[in-house]
Amino acid sequence: MNRPLDRRLGWTWWTRNGSYFRIFLREATSAFILAEIVLFMLLIHKAGQDAETYLAYRDFLWHPLMVVFHLVALAFALWHTISFFLIAPNALPSQVAGRRIPAAFIVGQQFAGLAAVTLLLFLWVAWVGAT
C-alpha cells in the first residue's frame, strides 16, 4: 500500500534548470582546454619536423574556423578561471590565525597572481623574441 514515489532525474539532470546547465557547461569547458593542449602539443611536434609540415600546420591553426574555435576556448577558459576564483573563498578556511579573511581579498589575490604570471610569461616571450 505504501509506495513512495521516486521522482529523481536520471542522466538528464543538467536540463532541470538554468544553473544546472551552466554548471554542466562549466565542466564541459575542460574539453575545449584539453583540445587546445592537444593542438599545442602537435604544434611542438610539427616544429621538430621540416618547415613545410610546420607551416601547413600553422596555416591550419589560422583557418577562420579554427580561430573561432580558439576564441570560444579562450572564452571558456576565462569563464572557468573567473568562476573558480570567485568561489575559492568558500573553499578555504574562514580564519587565519584567528582573523577573518575577507572574501574580496582572496579573490583579489588570485586575480593579481594570474596577472603577474601572465605578465612574466609575456615578458619572457618578448625577451626570447628579441634575442
Binding site: S19, I23, I87, P89, N90, A91, L92, P93
Partner: peptide, 22 residues
C-alpha cells in the same frame, strides 16, 4: 563536484559547499 547549488538555496546561509571544499 562543487556545483554550489546547495549554498545558493540555503535559507540560513550555512554554505555547505564551502564546508565540503574546506
Amino acid at each position: 563536484t562543487f556545483v554550489g547549488e546547495c549554498s545558493e538555496v540555503c535559507p540560513k546561509h550555512v554554505d555547505p559547499a564551502g564546508a565540503i571544499q574546506q
